[in-house]
Computed example of a mutant assay.
Amino acid sequence: MGPFELTGRVALVTGATSGIGAATAALLAERGAHVLVAGRDRTRGEAVVAGIRDRGGRADFVAADLRTAESVRQLAGEAVGAGGGRVDILVNNAGVYPFGPTEQVPRDEVDTVYDLNVKAPFHLVAALAPAMAARGHGAIVNVSTMVAEYGVSGMALYGSSKAALNLLTKAWAAEFGPRGVRVNAVEPGPTRTESTVGMGEALDALAAEAPAGRPAAPEEIAEAIAYLASDAASFVQGAVLPADGGRTAV
């Protein structure tokens, strides 16, 4: 088995019913993982699962409500059950990314963003990483954003939540790395998905600021996630990998 192969491993991908999550689920399955497709929309989730199975991969849908600690813990338990008693790879991809002036952000939206972007990954890692550590191996990949690295008007709430996730990535690497669990993050730049279609020209304008000059395809971000999840990244721990077309490098 090559270093990129994931045969025999169980991977839980949150927010896997569309966009980057769906592309990641498909790629991990293509490389041999049994993928647990987690999301709120069963119809879309089952469609992702069917696509993976049609290509000869192994996948199951797991319903996920990430808005409370209790529901996140329930997801972790159901994932372990569906995975035959374990989860080897966790991809914390689910999240929300509202934009807008700080003074116009609804009060409940502040809580929602932090519940989904920070608390849900925290509770999933708390539920799943100790068992990975007990087995002596595991990989966790957090999906962040390039705007966690620099200030962008209108993105204070979203960017700050992902900046917290970046710090959690490093802290978890220090905590679980000595016991064989690698924790890393990917910072996507503008990516053309079902969710960003409504951004229209704003997405292209944001992408034009980077050397690549274009939005990413979800599959390009999935490749970075799959690398960090694989043994090819065996000596990579606590890294926050930009996949932003070079935006944070200039």
Rank of each mutant, 00 (worst) to 15 (best):
D88C: 00
G8L: 10
E220D: 08
L206M: 15
P215I: 03
A239W: 07
H137F: 13
G51D: 14
H34E: 14
A217I: 01
A23F: 05
V62T: 00
G83L: 09
K162H: 05
G100H: 03
L128I: 05
L66E: 09
P188N: 03
T193N: 11
D231F: 12
V49M: 04
G39M: 06
A38S: 03
V250D: 10
T68D: 15
S144D: 15
A208V: 08
Q74A: 15
A210K: 04
A79T: 01
T17S: 10
N117G: 03
V37M: 09
R40I: 08
G238E: 07
E220R: 01
G39Q: 03
L203Y: 12
A129D: 07
A76S: 12
A47C: 06
G154S: 14
V147C: 06
L203M: 15
N117E: 06
G19C: 05
A202G: 04
I140P: 04
D108H: 10
G95Q: 09
T193G: 09
R214E: 14
A134F: 09
K170G: 01
V250F: 13
A226R: 07
A217F: 04
V105L: 14
T68I: 12
A212I: 09
E5H: 01
A126Q: 15
P178A: 07
P190S: 04
A243G: 12
V10E: 06
A33W: 04
G189P: 08
P178G: 06
M146D: 07
P190F: 03
A185K: 08
V49C: 03
E46L: 14
G198N: 05
G189F: 09
A156R: 01
G84R: 05
G138D: 09
